[in-house]
């Protein structure tokens, strides 16, 4: 039986509250569903926007003020409770190595889709 669209919309709304941190990290190991974090170089608060009934957009920008000696090799999304410090890993991707210096800016965008 198909799952109904109304609950998907509700899940999307809930999902939008479950991403409030975007990390870039230096760990390039292959991403698996068992991962529980990242070797964080920097953390930004992403912009989370509900695009339609089945998808949200999560977007984070690192401007030219972010300079790291190590290459960025992973991106990681998580939810962190500001009061309790509890965190829920949401998504991790290993990416092609990227050097972040004062001479570039990087925008990460993710579409999370419930379908």
């Amino acid at each position: 039986m198909p799952m109904l669209n109304s609950i998907k919309r509700r899940l999307v709304e809930h999902l939008a509250t479950l991403v409030n941190e975007l990390h870039v990290g230096s760990d390039g190991t292959i991403a698996t569903s068992e991962d529980g974090g990242a070797r964080t170089l920097a953390r930004v608060v992403p912009r989370v926007q509900i695009l339609d009934d089945t998808s949200i957009l999560v977007e984070g920008v690192l401007n030219s003020s972010h300079v790291f000696s190590k290459a960025i090799q992973e991106v990681y999304l998580q939810y962190k409770d500001a009061n309790t410090g509890e965190f829920i890993p949401v998504y991790r991707a290993d990416i092609h190595s990227l050097t972040k210096s004062a001479e570039n800016e990087v925008r990460f965008s993710f579409i999370l889709e419930v379908s």
């Binding site: 991106v75 001479e103 800016e105 990087v106 990460f108 965008s109 999370l112 419930v114």
Partner: peptide, 18 residues
């Protein structure tokens, strides 16, 4: 009854030299 909901993520990186 087996109904499924799939959660998918599509990501992109924009790099822009400054």
């Amino acid at each position: 009854g087996v109904g499924s909901i799939v959660l998918r993520v599509r990501g992109g990186i924009d790099v822009r030299p400054v």
